[in-house]
Design a binder for these strands. Structure first.
Length: 483
RNA sequence: GCGGUCAUAGUUCAGUGGUAGAACACCAGUUUGUGGCACUGGCUAUCUGGGUUCGAUUCCCAGUGAUCGCCCCA
């Protein structure tokens, strides 16, 4: 016991000291050290490190990676299949890009934007969604000269400073598909098809597709006026929030979950009944295409989306069938005015985004399969200093030959290494001990039967390859080695 | 941004105004070079800061975080 520790023990209550066991002393010492460290940190005015991710941000742990990998594979494959090229745009854009496109009055911009000023004085923001950045890149790089439609695929984190709950984080991952330069509603139908394909390919079979048309700026304004005058006539029956929305964003009243409001909303004029001729035909054609595709869609006249740039078609993909829990896995719509608004040439466009975290929550819920990578079928155990050195080289030889091997070189005893091998569920273990290292041999132990044989290390690789082949085991191949 | 609930080992949960337990997981051992089973041992926690108290993990307040509802949306 050191001098310091004795002091600490003295500090223990006399009653305790009498029967203080070693365990208690150790504990007291630890506690004391902890407090001391904290006090020292305070003294030095060091901010203690908070061992916690910032609010609304999560680590994606190894155990969850199979779901992410599955999501990546499916979304990338479908992007390729449907002719989307990948684009990656910055996480940070000038703030006014979002103000202009998404809209100043929207919650996403007004309340949830992560904006800040750089050292150089630029007003920038973390992207709250991906469409604005992709549209900016489309204009900046003159992609309007490419063959239409220009289909772009993008994934990455987006940021919204909102209050977190399940399926809603401040940093979350979006999977984004956009198509520029085509106004035919057949593209709307195809985009909805892609969105549905992605979700269902991930194993989430029960989905609802909600579609609506919110018209173009012209007919939307007429409709809005009509709606406002209707709602104003019923304003005494609306909840407090909705009275406020009446001024700010009357369309949102239609979304309100309050009973009295939904009653008012039920008999409110619907946007689909007040579309201009062009928008009406567009929507009608879209529905015909959707019928052709056998997609389970529902026209939801109350589906209004929160971003200002949408025109005509809007849609969302919901998980689950009919009633019960329904969360939006993704959504999107047409934004025919956006490119021009940002300073490009008038370009019709449509896009949608899926939320990866929500997809994964749902995948787990329906027990969808995830992508489990290749597992090693072989374990390499070593024993003794000489064998330890040799095993490092042997591991690399095996790896170069495309044989995936597990090891636990840091462990000393053969017993504990075999324990690990067993836990990993390998089919055979290669044992390289002192004796084998001297003889130039290796023991191959079959982990199922327990049988083992000693072979010369020169023949080991071929032998192992043959064994894996006989067992009908897929041997891991690195593509780069074959070219 | 508003309201409700909650916060104890890595995980799932006990428990208490007076030295905090279990299970699983992890590490090691059960004779010196052999896994699974079993047994033994070990490691590890009261979210943070104040207050009440002789004493707080427990009671009170605040903060933080999670979760649920609202808002909004992916």
């Amino acid at each position: 016991m050191g001098k310091d520790n004795k002091k600490i023990v003295k500090k223990l209550k006399p009653a305790k000291l009498v029967k203080a066991t070693k365990k208690e002393v150790v504990k007291a010492v630890k506690t004391e050290r902890k407090t001391k460290n904290r006090k020292e940190a305070v003294k030095k005015e060091l901010e203690p490190i908070v061992l916690q991710a910032p609010r609304g941000m999560k680590d994606i742990l190894p155990e969850d990676q199979p779901y992410w990998e599955q999501t990546r594979r499916v979304t990338e494959k479908l992007a390729r299949d449907y002719g989307f090229s990948r684009i990656d745009t910055p996480l940070v854009e000038f703030s006014n890009l979002f103000n202009r496109s998404i809209g100043d009055g929207t919650d996403v911009v007004e309340k949830e934007l992560y904006s800040f000023t750089t050292k150089g004085g630029d007003k920038v923001a973390l992207r709250p969604e991906m469409t604005a950045g992709v549209a900016r890149a489309y204009i900046q790089h003159g992609m309007n000269v490419l063959g239409k439609p220009v289909k772009l695929f993008s994934t990455g984190h987006v940021y919204r400073h909102d209050r977190p709950q399940e399926g809603r984080q401040r940093e979350f991952y979006q999977i984004n598909y956009e198509a520029f330069g085509e106004q035919d509603p057949i593209l709307d139908a195809q985009m909805i098809q892609v969105a549905t394909r992605v979700v269902q390919s991930l194993g989430i079979k029960a989905v609802q597709i909600q579609v609506n048309s919110i018209g173009c700026p012209v007919c939307r304004k007429d409709y809005k006026d009509l709606l406002v005058s209707y709602l104003e006539s019923k304003s005494n029956k609306l909840c407090v929030d909705c009275k406020r929305r009446l001024d700010v964003n009357p369309l949102r009243v239609l979304d309100c979950k309050e009973d009295k409001c939904s009653q008012v909303a039920a008999s409110a004029p619907q946007s689909v009944d007040h579309l201009c001729e062009e928008c009406r035909v567009h929507f009608k054609n879209l529905l015909e295409y959707l019928d052709e595709l056998d997609l389970p869609y529902t026209i939801n006249p109350r589906l209004v989306r929160g971003l200002d740039y949408y025109t005509k078609t809007v849609f969302e993909i919901w998980s689950g069938s009919e009633e019960g829990r329904k969360s939006a896995l993704g959504g999107g719509g047409r934004y025919d005015g956006l490119v021009k608004l940002l300073g490009g040439e008038a370009t019709p466009a449509i896009g949608f985004a899926l939320g990866a975290e929500r997809l994964i929550i749902e995948m787990k819920r329906v027990q969808a399969k995830s992508y489990k990578g290749l597992k090693p079928k072989i374990f390499l155990a070593q024993l003794g200093e000489m064998a330890k050195k040799k095993s490092l080289r042997l591991f690399s030889e095996l790896e170069k030959n495309g044989i995936l091997v597990a090891e636990s070189f840091g462990r000393g005893s053969l017993k504990s290494q075999l324990r690990v091998a067993n836990r990993l569920g390998v089919e055979m273990t290669l044992i390289l001990g002192q004796k084998e290292a001297l003889d130039g041999t290796v023991i191959i132990k079959n982990m199922i039967s327990g049988e083992q044989e000693t072979v010369s290390s020169a023949k080991l690789i071929d032998l192992v390859k043959r064994k894996l082949k006989n067992d009908n085991v897929v041997v891991y191949h690195d593509n780069h080695d074959n070219h």
